[in-house]
Design a protein around this nucleic acid. Structure first.
Lengths: 236, 236
DNA sequence: AAGTGGTCTAGACCACCAT
DNA sequence: TGGTGGTCTAGACCACTTA
């Protein structure tokens, strides 16, 4: 039997392909159920083992659910945004068929304690018809020496991580986050359209790159509408 | 060729066995390097594929590190602790030199919509001298058909996951969490000793086992003192 | 060059689920 | 009962590391 040796492994490519189909809404668990493992193995011309490795990746991302005897279920039904990832905010929302909207509240180069930062504050949400529903408030501090002239980009349009990767070849890699809760103050209650004192989730993150350099310190406040879903594998 | 069909899968058992060896300090990456996959497959009398599934579990737990061409490295050096894991609450606190304390508020077998659950509610914290500081409130629903007679254990003393592993051979594997915030009501403000209306973090988690069966649905409310730290690596 | 882990195959049986 | 996913095998080639 011929083997397909490009020597990039096949299964991540298959996973990407299936992922994009899932995000496009090709499968609905009813009229268009997710295909069986055997069918997919045949479609992609690989063995069932290899196909299963691809499904494993999707399972870990929470895009599918498997259980013995039953068909694989796609799980995109709920409004879920794994905000715990490095895909851009916009990418996440596209999957939800919403139009992303970013309002830049502040974008300037400032010096703090002798170090220069690019300070970016954005209120982000989705456009629904004529109104905008705000979903997050993001306050980012980016070390300027790693990203000179980054202020020239318009981050109402572009993704921060995308620019970091494309223009500076610096790749977000790891994040340490601290989750706390806070009560909505006046400005937050206005932005998110919730009563004063509403409990909100706040995440402080330090994002590092492949070399463990801190490339962003960011505080994100989430609107109550936005459920934060974390998928994680067995840990320590 | 004979196959070992007990029909419990072999690989979690192998992983447990290797884990205990690693924790005992049998391997040191120098004089006693971790054995090769082929050697281990032979030792346990399984194919290399099966053995690799066992190693995958250890890798996800952070107990070993693999890279192509090199021997498997055991990695017990770092002690990192996130509250987002499957180690028991007690284990986590021991590392912090605090004495864990659990108050069982409810522990009974109940039927909901024709399905039977073991319902466990615990308030958990640490003893500091004479007083107890409560840190979490955990409300767990465990499917009784998977864990018959589980109510006979005293979960003020024992870890839920430890009992699941030891007595039922069911292994917590993945968790999907939804984070929200809520305002402290009367009971919460009393338990956590915070003002009424204080914003608190709440996590709803579905814990699944190796076969993606849901083995616990749990809601955890965290005291403000308890920072939730998440460490994540980029998936890409 | 030898040995390691990474990927892959073609087949098999089992346990579970829906019909 | 048929189909599904879960597990497993015995063998193969590849890419990387180490000696």
């Amino acid at each position: 039997m011929e083997q397909n040796r490009n020597y990039a492994p096949e299964y991540p490519r298959i996973a990407e392909d299936l992922k994009s189909a899932i995000l496009k809404g090709v499968y609905d668990n009813k009229e268009h159920p997710f295909p069986s493992e055997n069918a997919l193995a045949q479609r992609y011309g690989v063995s069932r083992s290899t196909l299963r490795k691809a499904l494993d990746l999707l399972k870990r991302e929470g895009l599918i659910e498997k259980s013995q005897g039953r068909r694989v279920q796609v799980s995109l039904n709920k409004l879920h945004l794994t905000s715990w990832n490095f895909s851009s905010f916009s990418e996440g929302l596209k999957a939800l068929n919403d139009e992303p909207y970013s309002r830049v509240d502040e974008a300037e180069v400032v010096e703090v304690n002798g170090e220069t930062f690019f300070h970016l504050r954005r209120t982000r949400g989705v456009k629904r018809g004529l109104t905008v529903q705000f979903l997050t408030l993001e306050d980012s501090w980016v070390p300027y020496r790693l990203f000179p002239r980054i202020e020239l980009h318009n981050f109402a349009e572009e993704s921060l991580y995308e620019v970091m990767r494309r223009e500076y070849r610096i790749y977000p890699c790891k994040g340490v986050s601290t989750i706390t809760a806070l009560s909505a103050d006046d400005a937050l209650s206005r932005d998110f359209d919730v009563p004063l004192g509403t409990a909100l989730v706040q995440a402080k993150q330090a994002i590092t790159d492949l070399n463990d350099r801190v490339i962003e310190k960011v505080t994100i406040i989430y609107a109550p509408e936005l459920e934060i879903r974390l998928v994680r594998d067995a840990g320590h």
